[in-house]
Amino acid sequence: MALVSLSDDKFRLENSGEAELSKVTPQRTKLVLNLISVYILWGSTYLFMHFMTERMPPLYMAGCRLLTAGLILYPFARFTGHARPNKQEWLAAGLIGILLLSVANGGMTVAVHYIPTGVAALLAGMLPLFIVILNWLTFSKVRPTKLVMAGLAVGLVGIALLVKPGGFRTTTTESWVGIGLIMVCNLAWATGTLLSGRMKLPTQMVSIAVQMLVGGGLLLLVSLVVEPVTLTSIGQAPTKAIGALIYLIIFGSLIGFSSFSWLARNAPPQILSTYAYVNPVVAMLLGWAFAGEALTGQSLVSALIILAGVVLISFGKRRG
Rank of each mutant, 00 (worst) to 15 (best):
S175D: 15
V184M: 08
S175L: 02
G166S: 07
S175H: 08
T170A: 13
L213D: 01
L218W: 02
I179F: 14
V163E: 05
V184Q: 01
S207K: 08
T170M: 12
G167T: 08
M205N: 12
G180C: 09
P165N: 13
L194T: 09
I179Y: 08
M205S: 12
G166W: 06
V214H: 00
L218I: 14
V210D: 03
V177L: 15
V214W: 02
V206P: 01
P165G: 08
K200W: 08
L220K: 02
P202L: 13
M199K: 10
L201Q: 11
T170V: 14
L201T: 15
N186K: 08
R198W: 10
V177G: 03
L187S: 13
W189V: 03
G215I: 03
I179Q: 03
S175Q: 00
V163A: 05
L220F: 11
M205A: 13
M205P: 01
G167M: 08
G178H: 06
R198F: 10
L213S: 02
L221E: 02
G180K: 07
L187C: 11
A188I: 06
F168T: 06
S196G: 14
T171C: 04
G192C: 00
Q204R: 11
R169K: 14
A160Y: 10
L161M: 15
T172L: 10
S207C: 15
T203P: 11
A190Q: 00
V214C: 01
L201S: 09
A188L: 06
L194C: 10
T171G: 05
T170F: 11
P165K: 02
I208T: 15
Q204P: 10
S196P: 09
S196W: 08
R198Y: 10
K200P: 08
V163P: 02
L221G: 02
G216Y: 01
A190N: 00
I208Q: 09
S207M: 14
V210F: 04
L181W: 05
A209C: 09
V214P: 00
A190C: 07
V177Q: 10
S196I: 08
Q211A: 07
K164E: 11
L181H: 06
N186D: 15
W189Q: 04
L187R: 04
G192T: 00
M212Q: 12
I182P: 01
I182S: 03
G167D: 07
W176K: 04
E174R: 10
L213T: 03
V210E: 03
L194Q: 09
A160E: 05
L213K: 00
V214N: 02
T170H: 10
G215S: 06
R198M: 13
L195S: 05
G178M: 05
M183S: 07
G167Y: 04
S196R: 11
T172V: 10
V210C: 04
L194M: 13
M183V: 14
Q204T: 14
P202F: 12
A190K: 00
